[in-house]
């Protein structure tokens, strides 16, 4: 188990370095004249050249990357080119919002998908059909469309929630709760429907296995079979889907954050990318890759704990 974990961490680090270098190279060759974008169209060539020097943009690619990487190793992610903040501050201000949103959405997804998927698998019949149809509809409606519908109905017409986030400095849990409810539900709906499908098929597959028949013939109660044996065997499939959904949500949150004006990391990523604010983009990439690696590691560990076969292979 320890070797397994260490191997996973090592490959994570390799991935991190590779993605950083790749992103940096892509940004380097994007051809954006950042100094010009900062100074505007009335600045003289000399002023632009000076700004370029100031930002180190006159250096070759590898020197710039090493400079950046050296900073990262000493814990310094640099400073935004368009903003007064350091990259570290910027991310620390925004990460809690994005993570809270994604974690809440994924927990809701996990619970609801399991309940719906298992109910459909065990009861079959009309319940199953409703879940199946719901899955198709849910898959067909993108989260951001739901988000816009929610804002229109629940925020603007009914006034039950704020249309844009009210998470102000020092805001209490109530502000977080009312600000994150609509976005979290919007993100959950589509994830739940496809999650429930996965859980349903995994549970049905297990229910048809011989060991379930054996357990039944021994008189073990249905409830015990379902929760102690079937769920445990079906869990790895569900967990893997969940981890993929988590990563998908980190991407999807970008649009959701825009609609609800949530000052999260996705919003930051988009604005920094279009401005060419390389320090911020690199910071976002670094944090996102680290989060993805950690989530994958946790899922692998959970799968290993649930199913010893995984550990051996």
């Amino acid at each position: 188990m320890v070797t397994f974990t260490l191997k996973r961490i090592a490959s994570g680090i390799v991935l991190l370095v590779a993605i950083s270098l790749l992103t940096y190279t892509l940004l380097y060759f994007s051809g954006t004249n950042i100094a010009r974008n900062i100074l505007g169209d009335m600045a003289t060539e000399d002023q632009v050249a000076l700004k370029q020097q100031e930002l180190g943009l006159d250096q070759p690619l590898f020197a710039r990357f090493l400079d950046w990487a050296g900073g990262v190793l000493s814990g310094d992610l640099g400073r935004s080119w368009f903003n007064a903040e350091t990259v570290g501050q910027s991310l620390m201000n925004r990460l809690p919002i994005t993570l809270t949103l994604v974690v809440v959405a994924i927990l809701l997804t996990a619970i609801l998908a399991t309940v719906l998927g298992m109910t459909a698998a065990v009861k079959r019949g009309w319940v199953d059909r409703v879940v199946q149809i719901g899955a198709v509809i849910g898959d067909a409606i993108p989260g951001f469309v739901l988000a816009i519908i929610f804002v229109t109905i629940f925020a603007i017409q009914l006034g039950l929630f704020p249309a844009i986030s009210t998470i102000a400095p020092g805001a209490g849990p109530d502000a977080w709760l009312i600000s994150l409810t609509l976005p979290a539900i919007a993100m959950t709906v589509t994830a739940v429907t496809s999650g429930a499908q996965q859980v349903r098929s995994a549970v049905i597959a297990q229910l048809e296995k011989d060991y379930v028949r054996t357990l039944r013939s021994r008189g073990v109660s249905e409830r015990e079979i379902l929760f102690k044996h079937v769920l445990r065997s079906a869990a790895p499939a569900g967990l893997t889907v969940l981890s993929l959904q988590f990563i998908g949500m980190l991407g999807g949150v970008v649009i959701i954050e825009q609609i609800f004006a949530l000052p999260g990391m996705g919003a930051l990523a988009v604005s920094a990318t279009s401005l060419g604010d390389i320090p911020i983009v690199m910071g976002v990439v670094l944090y996102t890759v680290i989060i993805v690696i950690i989530v994958n590691l946790l899922v692998d560990l959970a799968n290993g704990w649930l199913n010893p076969k995984v550990r051996v292979s």
């Binding site: 505007g40 704020p162 998470i167 970008v254 954050e257 825009q258 609800f260 004006a261 279009s274």
Partner: peptide, 21 residues
Amino acid sequence: MKLAPLARVAAVTAATALIFT
């Protein structure tokens, strides 16, 4: 001088806002 391109950049990009009711 003009802010237009930047504003438009922003318009098609991210949203970041907190509201103090």
